[in-house]
Design a protein around this nucleic acid. Sequence first.
DNA 1: GTAACTGGTTACAAAAAGGTAATTACTTAC
DNA 2: GTAAGTAATTACCTTTTTGTAACCAGTTAC
Lengths: 122, 122
Amino acid sequence: MSSNACPVDPLLRTITGRWTTYILWMLFTEGPLRFGELMGLMPDISAKVLTERLRMLERNGIVLRTQLQTIPPQVSYELTEQGRALNDVIRALNAVAVEWQSIGWEPDKGFPESLSADTAAE
Amino acid sequence: MSSNACPVDPLLRTITGRWTTYILWMLFTEGPLRFGELMGLMPDISAKVLTERLRMLERNGIVLRTQLQTIPPQVSYELTEQGRALNDVIRALNAVAVEWQSIGWEPDKGFPESLSADTAAE
DNA sequence: GTAACTGGTTACAAAAAGGTAATTACTTAC
DNA sequence: GTAAGTAATTACCTTTTTGTAACCAGTTAC
């Protein structure tokens, strides 16, 4: 992509994906969560995408996957110690979110990430 | 998408898009930038995508677009006052980026945001 | 044997996003 | 008249991402 010299680039590319930051937010605020619990908290994510994101975060040392030897086996996800370094980021994000919510800000629907509402209306 | 009750959700959906956070990072660190300057700083973004992101950020009150009455006209982009509320987020992000860089962390290439390397190899 | 439970995986199709290149507008310089 | 320069926009096509639904494993209850 671009600007390999910039240290934020790899970090951004890792944690700011489509559901990624949301998953981190959930693990940050709710603590360790099982796969099914994450699914329940994010009703619109599919198992496929959730799995993909969790695997990616695990590969990158941000999330720890723990398989419990129960019948049926349960799998728990939590932030690693390294992942918890994101606390300040997430806290700052939350502060802004609360502030902007208080002034009535809310995103316009027109941006590509969410839906092509303008064209979908045809 | 999900969890409408959660105040971070709309914020995340607005600022954590594919190039979005990077653009904010550039405007934060470099100050007001013209379209062509942004293109130069992010060699791999296309004019189409950059325009789309800038328009979205503008619609959402995060970026201010100023057209200078020059010949040819130049357009300058900068963070709005509201956009500058993201300072802490960006600073925290930078702190983590620097810290992780110092411990040699770098993202695995396997995550879906960048490429489907695993399946593309077939 | 069959369903249920959890946590996935896979294949296939659909949708979304992105890239490329041509085009626009307006003025100046040649 | 043509090119250059800035900041886009548009159409068209390709790549990437996502969704859907079916399926798997291992064990227990029925």
